[in-house]
Simulated scan of single mutants.
Amino acid sequence: MKKIATLLLFLTAFLINAQEKKSTQKIQLVEVSCGQCKFGMTPKGCDLAVRIGGKSYFVDGVKIDEHGDAHAKDGFCEAIRTAEVIGEIKKGRFVVSYFKLLPKKM
């Protein structure tokens, strides 16, 4: 019985810690566009990127064509847009857990 109680206590502490960590991640406003076409990144090929604090990172978790044709007049290869994001930089890439493209400015 003590083992079960200890296990439940450990599991509860783990879940509380995980919830606290999740709630500390804040929404950031970032520039988002094609890494190659608009941010001058390599390797070659159109891929979604964000610019945070003047530094650009390719994005994992959202694809460039999920928000329309990247080569359209207002697409990511033609324009730099703004998005709300939650994520973290891992191994030089931005791993997104929340992504909301904001409306274009008129």
Score class of each variant (00 low, 15 high):
32 V>S: 03
34 C>T: 00
35 G>P: 14
36 Q>W: 13
38 K>H: 06
38 K>I: 09
39 F>A: 07
39 F>R: 06
40 G>N: 12
40 G>L: 10
40 G>S: 08
45 G>F: 06
45 G>P: 13
46 C>I: 00
46 C>K: 04
47 D>N: 10
50 V>Q: 10
51 R>F: 02
52 I>Y: 07
52 I>S: 11
52 I>F: 07
54 G>F: 04
56 S>I: 11
56 S>E: 13
57 Y>P: 04
57 Y>G: 03
57 Y>W: 02
57 Y>T: 00
59 V>K: 15
59 V>H: 13
59 V>N: 13
59 V>D: 06
60 D>K: 15
60 D>G: 05
60 D>F: 02
60 D>M: 10
62 V>S: 03
63 K>N: 06
63 K>V: 02
68 G>L: 01
68 G>Y: 01
68 G>C: 02
68 G>W: 01
69 D>A: 03
70 A>N: 01
71 H>R: 15
72 A>Q: 01
75 G>K: 01
76 F>M: 00
77 C>Y: 01
78 E>C: 12
82 T>R: 15
83 A>S: 07
84 E>I: 12
84 E>H: 13
84 E>P: 08
85 V>H: 15
85 V>E: 14
85 V>Y: 13
86 I>W: 05
87 G>V: 06
90 K>G: 10
93 R>S: 07
94 F>P: 14
96 V>R: 10
97 S>C: 10
97 S>D: 14
102 L>D: 04
103 P>I: 09
103 P>N: 06
105 K>A: 07
105 K>H: 10
